[in-house]
Nucleic acid binder design. Structure first.
Lengths: 245, 245
DNA sequence: CGGAAAGGTGTAAATAGTACACAATTGTAG
DNA sequence: CTACAATTGTGTACTATTTACACCTTTCCG
């Protein structure tokens, strides 16, 4: 265990000053959109996975590292979406940080959002938290600092993104049914979609493979399974889906 | 005039370390899309208007301040679009900066793009430049550092933005003709659009007022003048134009 | 083996997008 | 002063996309 001064020194030495990264990690499970959050025992409010940038580390790598530290996973959909740079956004009220020079500085935070497959994630608390866990979007706790704003902005960005990019690959398991995929879209958009029109549209993108098998075991007619056609999916990510001039 | 050491000290004292802002300022004049650029006498390559963030300044304010310093204008369309954070992006090769501790640090740059009315701008060089001037998009000089990448990313963002936001208000003069507005879109997208369909579409957005007057003086039939309906324009900016789920 | 709940599929109507042509105005050249 | 060239204004038929909507099938359960 290091002394307080040594810890202080530690942060200062390896991380860039003034810059932090916050990640909004979205997952989808049992028809619920979820976001990964952390909580320390000393505080009521929850916060988003975050961290700092090593002196010689590209910021994309930093975001990936932070994400991996909290989830165990790597190589996922991870995108910058906004920078939060108000001078009073990062006043830590926690007594722990009060006289730590590194934590007491102003931080400009680069917001990333990630789309991950829920079952691949093993939530792991960071050095300041006892809890790291998924929270349902319709049962969110109080947020620390400006993290509610960061989360909101990420969600808005995700909703916008639905309009010109496919997103399911990162959030769904390998195989899934059409109703399951539709539920994902409905959950993100927070509105009901027409079953038949949804299917036509999503199939029209050409990013799905219809599989032979069906998902048995439900109490009803067995739905077909689909998987993503990775080649077309990647092309759609690059080109955008449609629309415009 | 300050000594070199005093200057060094000056930067360190008032600006945040590691963080810079670069602005891609778009203007439109005589059917040409233009970008504001700077050049010093010591270097061949040009660069984008940029600067740093004051210790207690919100980053949006910093971007506005930097923009105002180079253009004289304020309260324009100005948006974050990307953060550029590779550790080797900001190695200044210029001898001037070689032993200046402030300039020799790693900078993570927040990219902003601005849409401005060409005629409102009075380009003003910064402390390192002799030249500050508009450059045509189809006659761009060599760029310093990663500024070509920053510029490209801004242009791609602007093109994407056309699909879900109106943009003309910030780039056009108060009054303009339909062909002039069409030319703006064609220039940004770098492709021809059908005159009649363009008109129907843009009028369909409900963001234009058709004026009584026409623009005389051209060698041809006098086109009608239009202005933007600010109320509807602002609503369209907020809501997005159309499309999607 | 009948019923409840969910999934699979098609079609008609409305809407939006595309392609395309002719008439009117204006300055210029003869 | 007139014919011409260039540009603007405007409308319509055709096509593609989006929307709204209904019936049949499968499966499990009681």
């Amino acid at each position: 265990m290091l002394t307080k001064e040594q810890l202080d020194d530690h942060w200062e030495k390896i991380y860039l000053n003034h810059i932090s990264i916050d990640c909004v990690v979205f997952g989808f499970h049992e028809g619920q959109l979820k976001v990964l959050m952390l909580k320390s025992n000393n505080e009521e409010a929850w916060y988003l996975p975050g961290g700092f940038v090593l002196k010689e580390e590209p910021i994309e790598e930093a975001a990936n590292r932070i994400l991996k530290e909290r989830t165990g996973i790597d190589e996922v959909f991870l995108r910058q979406f906004h920078v939060f740079g108000d001078p009073d956004r990062s006043k830590f009220h926690n007594e722990i940080y009060k006289d730590n020079s590194f934590f007491n500085q102003r931080f400009i935070s680069i917001g990333y959002y990630a789309l991950v497959d829920f079952v691949d994630v093993t939530p792991m608390p960071d050095a300041f938290s006892e809890l790291c866990t998924w929270r349902d979007l319709d049962d969110l706790p109080a947020f620390q600092l400006d993290h509610e704003h960061i989360f909101r902005t990420a969600l808005d960005t995700l909703r916008l993104q639905l309009n010109y990019q496919p997103i399911g690959y990162s959030l769904m398991p390998q195989q899934f049914t059409m109703p399951e995929l539709q539920k994902l879209y409905e959950t993100i958009l927070d509105k009901k979609l027409d079953r038949r029109n949804f299917q036509r549209r999503i199939l029209g993108f050409g990013i799905l493979n219809k599989l032979e098998e069906t998902r048995k075991g439900g109490a009803h007619k067995a739905p077909y399974l689909y998987s993503f056609n990775l080649e077309n999916y990647r092309a759609a990510l690059k080109e955008g889906l449609q629309g415009g001039w």
